[in-house]
Amino acid sequence: MRYAMAIDTKKCVGCSDCVVACQTENDVPIGYCRDWVVEVTNGTYPQLEIEIRSERCNQCSNAPCVRCCPTGASHIADGGIVLVTENKCIGCGACINSCPYDARYSHPDGYVDKCTFCIQRIRKGLEPACVATCPTKCMYFGDLDDPNSPVSKMLKIRKYTTLIPEAGTEPQLYFLM
């Protein structure tokens, strides 16, 4: 089993619903976030193009944040989801420094928090909150080992990229182009 997410940049409108949905679903305190939206504009008026990406932890297969964690708080759970066990985390910040995507944040309670692919929801058969809320339905989630999962299907028919694959992290967040 290998969970992954694909985001269609052709449909994403940058509305940030994914960000609030995550905040409320996962009780992420105001002022913090597990996901965020980036907008890149290239060109000169009127020859312009915009790429919008909803970003979050890439649930890297080769996760530096897990490797550098001194306590084992950062670990890889079923389906390759990278998680942090709150009561093992000492808040040393090593994993925050080790993530090339800045995907982790220091929770005001001291431990480090990040996107969990909403593991509590997917265990119940639900989609992650951001995916389930996105008004443009531009996010696809599922198991890469299952050829019929929404994410596998999209990756089969669409061109995609990942973010800085050259950092060697083997990210599992795909951006459909």
């Binding site: 619903d17 389930a132 996105c134 008004p135």
Partner: peptide
Amino acid sequence: IWKVVGNDEDQHSNGRFCPRGTGGP
């Protein structure tokens, strides 16, 4: 109050709120 989400049966939202509605709390 924890969260507000769309009602799947609703033609206005199709089970998905927009960011403002999601931020309703």
